[in-house]
């Protein structure tokens, strides 16, 4: 099959199509990987080029994805078209809320603002969408809010941005940080 020929797209036909994301995100530094797997550029079956099936590997034995809790229903992933006619790409934006201001969160957010990241975002059905790729990492901008005595909530609103040519499912092995 020619990758660039279009295929029929069916409706859900009974499959789950739950909106929203699970209450966490997996985060790893771009420079911690020894190999950042990519989806194939061409394929023989429909959809093959949108799935990363190879495994990401890390340089150090104790490295892996860090699981960051996000408040349920605070996180969202969007991708918007950028560029001009005949040269379009995607700007992916991610947002979520991590509650609290304990020492680990303060440190994490201080460090992460100056890093390139690869993140795996689990959709409500548990499929990982990968945001960030080699050379096109996600950048996190964590905004802190103490909240007020009478209202609001204390913690970090984490906004991530990345540029990409498309959205990809990650189906390889997910190794957590030891």
């Amino acid at each position: 099959m020619n990758t660039f020929s279009l295929t029929h797209l069916k409706g859900p036909q009974g499959d789950d199509n739950t909106p929203g994301l699970l209450g966490y995100v997996l985060v790893a530094r771009e420079d911690a990987f020894s190999k950042i797997a990519k989806a194939p550029k061409t394929g023989t079956t429909a959809g093959e080029t949108a799935i990363i099936t190879d495994n990401h590997t890390f340089t150090n034995a104790d490295d892996g994805f860090a699981k960051v809790y996000l408040t349920l229903d605070s996180n969202m992933l969007k991708a918007a078209i950028t560029g001009e006619r005949d040269g379009r790409g995607l700007k992916i934006s991610f947002e979520g809320f991590h509650p609290g201001n304990n020492a680990e969160a303060l440190e994490f957010m201080r460090i992460v603002k100056n890093l390139g990241l690869i993140i795996l975002v689990p959709d409500a059905d548990g499929t990982y969408l990968q945001v960030g790729a080699e050379g096109l990492p996600v950048e996190f901008a964590p905004d802190y809010d103490s909240g007020k005595l009478s209202s609001g909530r204390r913690g970090f609103t984490v906004k991530g941005e990345a540029y990409a040519n498309g959205m990809y499912i990650y189906a390889g092995t997910v190794k957590y940080k030891a």
Binding site: F58, D62, Y128, Y170, A171, V174, K177, A178
Partner: peptide, 12 residues
């Protein structure tokens, strides 16, 4: 173990 033992997911 080839890595420091940790949690691993194989979604496929």
């Amino acid at each position: 173990s080839t890595v420091i033992p940790c949690r691993i997911e194989m979604p496929r």
